[in-house]
Nucleic acid binder design. Structure first.
Lengths: 346, 346
DNA sequence: ACACCTGTTGCACACTTTTGCGCAACGCAA
DNA sequence: TTGCGTTGCGCAAAAGTGTGCAACAGGTGT
């Protein structure tokens, strides 16, 4: 067993309470006594055990990380682990623990949450996703539990702490980039837009088009919720249109890879026949040929920022709900080409 | 604040100790009393708080998950998150918490470990990787801490609990599969073999060749430790050899995708000019064209099994070090072709 | 009737830290 | 010398649970 506050107290010749107060730099302890105690702590290599402070402070310095209930495939997106690593890194630094809550469906996750709360084992949650009408977020909100969202709040936006990219802006920038290269027939390919990041990117895409006087064409907008479905016919239909797009904004690298495959099957070459810009800048974007131009959303930083906000709110309970925005970066690679002038005459 | 053992005791008209013993089904409490207590517990919705038991039992029902210190790229391998999900799922079921320990280098990870231990905040560790001469594993061993390895033990093998695939066998099976398709010029492409899974797969590859009377050709064996390096010249040299291989065993899907790209650049087509079999069966294997034949190592199950072993050892401290093997499965897709008979005459 | 045994339960303390309150000592002024 | 204020520190209770030991009731054997 590790050494306790009593050992230090004995060595320093004071009472445990004095040691405790010294640790927290309480002004009612004299400088000399503090010095003495600190020497004893250093000599013994003392670190207060969490067990005791948890008991007496009713706070366990642990946060829960909630993964979405999704098909297994979704977790292969490196986004999640990067965000988790960001959270863990920050927690390690601030001497918090973090625990992942997962399950095969909403119900399992809910019961894990309830269990942890009943046990007083968790001070707050980070929810790694954001979607419309989510049962778990509703539960957290209704129970008055502390949580921060990675992604934009759907309901209760005013009272919710969240960390997000400016996905609307990112969607606009992606579209503007293609526009600046001379593209006018720009399509959008995204996941199911109940996932809010996708909805925002799509809205950004649409608003960029409108700004240039282009009315978004519904036939130019495809939404699939899995890269496996993306082999389907909708994409093929779009690509074979009389007025097929010359460029596409794709809401995730993984979908973009699926799109590349579809193009390959149809004999379209990238970027010659189709320019592609996607999001997340994951390994997927770097392993394809051509490598994908992609918008990096800094998922690691989303994680650290979320952890930072949550811990801040744990330690200062009455703070108003803060929102923070993590910047994104456009990484240019080889999947977009400048359109020759004549093609630009829409 | 949640309801405590005292509330239950008061309602049931017994002492807190009786409630405690009832929870653990201690035989020294009569059936009638237990019934009475259980009714009170149900009525109040009581669940023992972890804080108290942590204090009194000196065990916090928390395990640490140690990520390798690696270049960021490595974490994009879906293997890690799948293993973590497996661990979390099992922990959630068994009402344990898990916390991820990570850092930019060995030193940061070590200090996170030391901190957690000094705080009595962790009962044991799961190490998500296994490599030669690892400082962190040495530390855990020397401090006598409880840990289980995912992957094969290098040093201290006898005293180490580990969960692994039979990577030697898997390497053999991959090679045998290619052999059975008529391939004789089979090369190996793997990561840096200080990572033990890679070393084992390579050894399996070699032994399968030897079994068929083929002496492994050193020129047929390439090791790179990052998919970015894989764009390098070694691979190109091999593929352009006079006696270039007709098939390759690749230790990871991600490397296999890099290999596919290299082939593309050299005008080689898959599986026509080169058959590829790889490991992990990740999304990478499914998103390429052609889709990769790959050996699924069941990373989720590696995680659950590791958590199961660790918790078992936490609760039964004197168990001998167990080892368990998680089965793998060959998933056939489109990256391997049967060689015409004449080509098989080596 | 007394001693002993068995089965059941509660008391008191353990674990470790935090903190309200009170006490002792000291200086200074009346 | 008494009284008051201040400073510095320890006592003890608090958080919630687990457990060794003692006690108690009731029954049995002598």
């Amino acid at each position: 067993m590790a050494i306790t506050i009593k050992d230090v107290a004995a060595l320093a010749g004071v009472s445990p309470s004095t040691v405790s107060r010294t640790c927290k730099d309480n002004p009612s302890i004299s400088r000399e006594t503090k010095e003495k105690v600190r020497r004893a702590m250093a000599q013994l290599g003392y670190d207060p055990s969490a067990a005791g402070s948890t008991a007496s402070l009713q706070s366990c310095r642990t946060i829960g990380i909630i993964l979405p209930p999704s098909p297994r495939e979704a977790y292969e997106n490196p986004f999640y682990l990067e965000a988790i690593r960001g959270i863990s890194q920050f927690c390690n630094d601030r001497q918090y623990a973090s625990t992942i809550l997962t399950g095969r469906d909403n119900e399992e996750i809910l019961s894990a949450i309830q269990f942890m709360m009943r046990k007083d084992q968790i001070d707050g949650f980070i929810v790694l996703y954001s979607r419309q009408d989510d049962e778990i977020i509703d539960y957290l909100y209704k129970e008055g539990l502390l949580y921060v969202l990675i992604g934009k709040a759907h309901r209760f936006a005013n009272q919710t702490i969240y960390i997000d990219n400016d996905n609307l802006l990112a969607g606009q920038e992606a579209t503007e980039y293609l526009y600046a290269l001379g593209h006018r027939k720009i399509a959008y390919f995204g996941t199911d837009s109940t996932l809010l990041f996708s909805a925002d990117r799509k809205a950004g895409y649409q608003s960029a088009l409108l700004r240039h006087g282009i009315t978004p064409n519904p036939a130019y907008c495809i939404e699939e919720n899995s890269p496996s479905c993306a082999d389907g016919s909708a994409l093929q239909e779009l690509l074979l249109l009389e007025a097929a797009p010359t460029a596409m904004v794709v809401s995730d690298d993984i979908l973009a890879v699926a799109l590349e495959r579809a193009c390959g099957r149809l004999g379209l070459s990238i970027p010659k026949d189709l320019s592609i810009i996607s999001f997340n800048n994951s390994l997927f974007a770097r392993l394809t040929s051509p490598q994908l131009t992609s918008i990096d959303v800094n998922s690691f930083q989303l994680g650290t920022e979320a952890a930072s906000q949550l811990i801040n709110h744990i330690e200062n309970p009455n703070l108003p709900a803060t929102k923070s925005i993590v910047p994104h970066t456009l990484v240019k690679r080889d999947s977009c080409r400048r359109l020759a002038q004549e093609a630009a005459t829409f």
